[in-house]
């Protein structure tokens, strides 16, 4: 399963609920305001770092760039472009978009 999260972890519990339901081996792609969860030095960085032991975490580059935060991405998070987003959607049998 590919999970996408498009909400900031500071505004919503979307990412927390997503990570609680993502099975080991699944992928989590942070998009739109969801990319704020991909950053180091925030109150949510530890939660994301811990999750990376079980799931692969990705962040969408254009959304990081737009927000001026591309230089603060946590170690271990893979930054992808739109083509990479498409590849992830193809690699996984289903996609769940957490809103």
């Amino acid at each position: 399963m590919l999970h996408t999260v498009n909400k900031s972890p500071f505004e919503r519990n979307t990412l927390k609920t997503c990570l609680a339901h993502a099975k080991p081996g699944s992928a989590v792609l942070l998009i739109e305001d969801g990319v704020y969860a991909a950053l180091s030095g925030t109150a949510h960085s530890d939660m994301v770092t811990q999750a990376m032991a079980q799931v692969s975490v990705y962040a969408l580059g254009p959304d990081l760039d737009a927000r001026g935060v591309a230089n603060r991405v946590l170690n271990g998070i893979k930054v992808v472009d739109y083509a990479g987003f498409v590849d992830l959607a193809i690699e996984h049998p289903a996609t769940q978009s957490w809103l």
Partner: peptide, 9 residues
Amino acid sequence: MAEQDVVLS
């Protein structure tokens, strides 16, 4: 959730 073919949120 993991056993679904389609998940709509």
